[in-house]
Design a binder for these strands. Sequence first.
DNA 1: GATGAATGAGGATTCATTCAT
DNA 2: AATGAATGAATCCTCATTCAT
Lengths: 203, 203, 203, 203
Amino acid sequence: MAPRPDVSVQRTQEVLEAAIKVFARMGFHKARMDDIAQEASVSKGVLYFYFKSKDAIIEALLKQIFSRSLHIQELLQTEGSVRDHLLDLTDTFGHEVQMMKLLLPVAFEFYSLAGRNKTVNEFVGNYYRELINSLGKLIEQGITRGELRSDLDTTQTARTIISIFEGMTLLWILEKGKFDWLDNAKNSITQFIRGIERCPYQT
Amino acid sequence: MAPRPDVSVQRTQEVLEAAIKVFARMGFHKARMDDIAQEASVSKGVLYFYFKSKDAIIEALLKQIFSRSLHIQELLQTEGSVRDHLLDLTDTFGHEVQMMKLLLPVAFEFYSLAGRNKTVNEFVGNYYRELINSLGKLIEQGITRGELRSDLDTTQTARTIISIFEGMTLLWILEKGKFDWLDNAKNSITQFIRGIERCPYQT
Amino acid sequence: MAPRPDVSVQRTQEVLEAAIKVFARMGFHKARMDDIAQEASVSKGVLYFYFKSKDAIIEALLKQIFSRSLHIQELLQTEGSVRDHLLDLTDTFGHEVQMMKLLLPVAFEFYSLAGRNKTVNEFVGNYYRELINSLGKLIEQGITRGELRSDLDTTQTARTIISIFEGMTLLWILEKGKFDWLDNAKNSITQFIRGIERCPYQT
Amino acid sequence: MAPRPDVSVQRTQEVLEAAIKVFARMGFHKARMDDIAQEASVSKGVLYFYFKSKDAIIEALLKQIFSRSLHIQELLQTEGSVRDHLLDLTDTFGHEVQMMKLLLPVAFEFYSLAGRNKTVNEFVGNYYRELINSLGKLIEQGITRGELRSDLDTTQTARTIISIFEGMTLLWILEKGKFDWLDNAKNSITQFIRGIERCPYQT
DNA sequence: GATGAATGAGGATTCATTCAT
DNA sequence: AATGAATGAATCCTCATTCAT
């Protein structure tokens, strides 16, 4: 007889997706377990079967959100100039931002939490540290190849690029998506690259 | 007999400052009115004498935080190149960030709220809209004076600069102030300026 | 497995009965939700599961108290003289008053509320309006049949009878049930009937 | 030097009148000391100078309201038939009711309180006991003079008359003064007198 | 495994009362 | 005497969590 298929993984994911929707709509605090249960079309008991507590759901969400990888590692292996790689990365990031539009207030709630909660801080911090690290290697490569100025601080430069992405996202949220994230970010990155290139690209 | 001196303005401010400390430490939700009262060394009743509700305190805080003006207007009137002005602005912003270190998680909580609360969105949105607007004028001036490339989109460029500031602040929070905001931001802005200058500055 | 039986109707009624006892003992204001919960032998949460708020309990009570019908409609269909009907009604009313002894202070609290709360006024007002209306029809019947004087104002006469019942109840409360409601009210009604009869009944 | 005139009596009365207005508008519970102070155009401190507590104000009000005397004693000394005296009394009562329109919800609040508070019960109870007593003497007089039937129970008859007054007042409140108290009550009393007269009055 | 009724700790808010000025 | 800012006990209500069915 075939064993009952294990639905736990799938069910866990369903609950998590419901939680995302509800948290995005109401914030961590205002969202009630009942809301999540209803959104997931399960009983409240089920929530507690898959997650120890509301905080556990939030923590699982934290891990889910800050585990998206920006394939920078792959970019490093790929053919192409740093300029192309960075614009490519902007594209990727931009599409993610637009897909995660609903999730962004949740992300900011995590940033806020990161200021006072160790677990959140470590997780989010690690995410960005790795991002900066990877990006730093891309910058390094650019310097080595002679595409970028040799006096650049790789970490600082990487931070600048991430800052542009994150800051742009904040402004985009505040203006409720009224401007084109991708258009503006590409412009930002293009200008910035020009500033760090060895032989500034001529328009 | 001398009438009791009017302490209402001062007391309101004291309460607000206590609230800032407590909110920064615990977040809007976890902070109890008792905590704020204790921090302000007054009784709970006093809070309700000066503010209608917890939300009213949060709203007052919102207005206080997002009313700091970055004296960009003044910069526009001042002698000096756009490059100098932008670096000057970076200085100002950086000092504010460092002074408001405790407040930053609160700011992020507002960013999160801005995604779903109209009042917050309008207030924070306006703040940044004005900032971008003013900064846009500075960029415009730079173009007119021939310091900056004439093909720049002033609004997009302004957004980029704000993004760098805000994104850098986020990273700074996440790394718990482990890197030097001012140092990194100045580097970012310097490189970016180089990318938008008409005749790139030679190091 | 058998589903848990639906106890909601029963539980609602239990809560309401506990509320009546507590309100009668302490009045609407002094009665705490905890008191009601304790009286009903349930937790406070249960109260809020079945009722939105304390006011909602009070409103439900209002409806319960002022929905008792005095079977006047039936009397109209029944054989017998108006005199008999009215004495019968007095009996009915008297037994209700004695059964609701505990409830009477609550009723007076509603009368007081009726002076300033629209919902309460409408509900209680309707109750008495219908009562007067039905009683008016009984009086009308009496006139038609030639039992009562033909110059009677039916509405005013109905109001008088209700007034006797209600006023007697007030005095009975104030004297803490020291006199016999039924005895006195029957006397009142007997005398009053004599005053409105076409051919005064001879004792 | 003339001593400062004693304003305490007058001031006390002013406060009490303000309290009546506020209590009538909001009920005992919802009325705040601030409301009373504002209505009386004095500071809250003054309230506590003249009254020990909110309850003390309510108690003073109780005494004020239930001390109105219905000059029945005088009627007993006066010329005239019992019929005339009772109609006269109805007039007096009716005018009082109309003057105290605002106060009536307060009266009902006292009736409610009387069911569970000893002080209130005693005070209101005494008021009605005296009223019934006096009225009983009037009835007695009527019997002695041969105007009323000799088989009447004086107390029960007195209670009936008070019941009509009080019950009519309740209905009048509930119908928001839409009918004419005096008209209806006179009708009630006229009919009732006919029922208790020795030689029924011929219309 | 699933359900959702029940629990009760936690926290915002109100307002009678006090008392320094 | 008068004021009204300050106090804090009292109480409503919410909702994460449990557990009997």
